[in-house]
Design a protein around this nucleic acid. Structure first.
Lengths: 152, 152
DNA sequence: GTAAAAGCTGACGTTGACGTCAAGGGCAAG
DNA sequence: CTTGCCCTTGACGTCAACGTCAGCTTTTAC
């Protein structure tokens, strides 16, 4: 398969595929003319990559995971990496659920414009949301300059 | 309260607070010297903003939501906006769940290095994940240049 | 054979939520 | 009064995942 076929079948742009190759996420054979050639499996690999991106996993981390995807088995470092990402995703889902609950309360309010028989108006639509009693010491950001919490 | 107090109590940087003000998300009184002054409620407002950011809601959308937060009641446009964001968040959660399931399968594999009695090795660790039969026609990106699907 | 479609390699642009540095002003403690 | 911390505005830097344009070669369709 050529790059356009993979792109169409996986639902991404050709630019994205070249970018994945640049990042080491997706290999390709080259025809003598220089054109990229992919096996059928590339389509599912791209879909997997997209799934990780959708989950907020950065390409550098995906790159670290790929060897274990390819090998079909793991080591202890693989296990650590995988569970770490799993935990991060679980936390992100909790954040999403909290935000969605806040929206739900606001929707409830929006549906009861008259203040009278509206129980939701008694409390603010957002939960105070105190993950820990005191705000995190001071760092609040990791060495990479990005927030340590949230979905990135 | 001054800006540093709010920042510490809400767990964000002062730069972020000035940015929120720039975006119209967070107002402040000014002391005669020009320094920003905030009421106590600012801390929870910042936490709400953070919650939305964590859910992938862009600041322009938060800005549209804020009037209804302030008013304590909603209109029909508010309802539309709120439910739209709610749906988006629900979809994002589904994406996260799918990615987490993929990770779970890979973790399962990592825990069974010997291929013999390992049921997970029979199938690929990622689900083919076909949301729609055929890949989306061609656009694949909206006018803003960002992907139409995914987490933000 | 010729034109359209598809690929190639750079290389620069985009977007959002801030980080970071520069150059100064304000204010309580000693 | 000066030391030191906090505050101000302004402006440029960052990072990721691509978009987009230019200029050129290859493949495909008729």
């Amino acid at each position: 398969m050529r790059i356009g076929d993979v792109a169409r079948r996986a639902g991404v742009s050709t630019r994205a595929l070249r970018y994945y190759e640049e990042q080491g996420l997706l290999a390709s054979q080259r025809a003598p003319s220089g054109q990229r050639t992919y096996p059928e499996s590339a389509v599912e690999r791209v879909r997997l990559i997209q799934q990780f991106y959708a989950a907020g996993v950065p390409s550098r981390t995906i790159l670290q995971l790929m060897p274990y995807v390819d090998a079909g088995h793991g080591s202890r470092e693989a296990f650590a990496l995988l569970t770490a990402e799993r935990d991060r995703i679980t936390a992100a889902m909790a954040d999403l659920a909290a935000a969605r609950d806040a929206l739900d309360r606001m929707i409830d309010i929006a549906n009861h414009p008259t203040a009278e028989h509206c129980p939701a108006l008694r409390e603010p639509p957002w939960t105070p949301y105190h993950p820990d009693a005191v705000a995190p010491a001071t760092p609040d950001h990791d060495a990479s300059g990005r927030p340590t919490a949230g979905i990135r």
